[in-house]
Amino acid sequence: MLKEECFYLGKIVSKFSFKGEVLIKLDTDEPEVYLEMESVFVDYNENLIPFFIERSSLHKSDLLRAKFEDVDTEEDADDLMKCDLYLPLTLLPELEDHQFYFHEIIGFTVEDINYGTVGTIVSINDTTAQSLFEIEKDGNQILIPMNDEFIEKLDKENKTIYLKTPEGLIDLYL
């Protein structure tokens, strides 16, 4: 399995017990959706390795407590600390037409109601307090907050997002 065929699910953040259980910080608003997983891919030494899940439960509502097969000691669990977890893209839940996953909109054209064509989305920066569209136009980077109030329309068929940004925001970058 290649990373390009997968989506980022989360990261193993700590050990939970001396029997190899780990706590996983899931990158989702709905962690309960992932309670019934049979397996995940662990990014271990730059390879995606399948790990089968014996049991899992929610821990303090936003962490997944998991016991992997053949991970039976603290030392085994230590070896997996800070590893990223992935699942195949085919397992992503279907979204409604006006919703999108971040990876889906890379390459989409951004049109602003007032400004016109802004550029092309090259990535999403979700490391800040508010996620940002990273848009490229003529070698310039434009950052626009992913604010529901700014998003007027999503046209998946034509790979275009229509925004209505505050006056002057786009001009700051050009």
Rank of each mutant, 00 (worst) to 15 (best):
Y115T: 05
V42L: 02
S39A: 11
N114M: 04
M81I: 00
K153Q: 15
Y173A: 04
L143W: 07
D171P: 03
E36H: 13
L2C: 00
D112L: 05
F7K: 11
K19T: 12
K82H: 07
K159H: 05
Y162M: 09
Q130I: 13
F18S: 14
S131A: 15
D72S: 15
F133D: 00
I24G: 00
N114T: 05
L132N: 13
V71A: 03
F16A: 07
D72K: 12
F41W: 14
N158H: 10
F52P: 02
T165D: 00
D70S: 10
L23Y: 00
F7L: 09
M146S: 06
D76F: 05
E94D: 05
L87D: 03
L23D: 00
G20L: 02
T127V: 03
P166S: 06
V33T: 13
L2A: 11
F7N: 04
D62T: 13
E74Y: 07
I121W: 05
T28F: 00
I53N: 08
L92G: 03
D70K: 14
L154F: 01
Y173L: 07
H103I: 14
C6F: 10
A66R: 04
M146P: 06
E111W: 00
T73P: 03
G119R: 07
Q130K: 15
D112G: 09
N147M: 06
E5S: 13
E74G: 15
F133C: 04
E111Y: 03
Y8P: 01
K156G: 03
I151E: 05
E136A: 06
Q99E: 11
F18K: 14
S57V: 06
K156D: 06
P93T: 07
N158K: 11
Y86C: 07
Q141I: 08
N114C: 06
C83F: 01
L26Y: 01
E74R: 14
L154H: 07
Q130M: 14
L48S: 09
C6S: 13
S123V: 04
G116R: 06
L92D: 05
F102T: 06
V13R: 02
Y101P: 09
I113P: 00
L91V: 04
E54S: 12
E149R: 12
K11C: 02
G139Q: 00
K153P: 02
G10Y: 06
E157W: 00
H103D: 13
K15H: 01
E149C: 01
L91C: 03
I24D: 00
F7A: 05
A66N: 02
V42W: 01
D126H: 11
K15R: 14
A66G: 04
T90L: 10
E74L: 14
E32C: 04
F133N: 09
I144R: 09
Y86A: 08
D112T: 10
L95E: 03
Y162T: 14
L58S: 11
V22E: 02
T109E: 08
E38M: 05
T127N: 14
P50H: 06
V122H: 02
P50R: 13
D76E: 06
E152R: 14
E69P: 04
G139S: 01
Y44N: 14
E134A: 07
N147Y: 10
E69K: 15
I170N: 04
D155P: 07
H98Q: 10
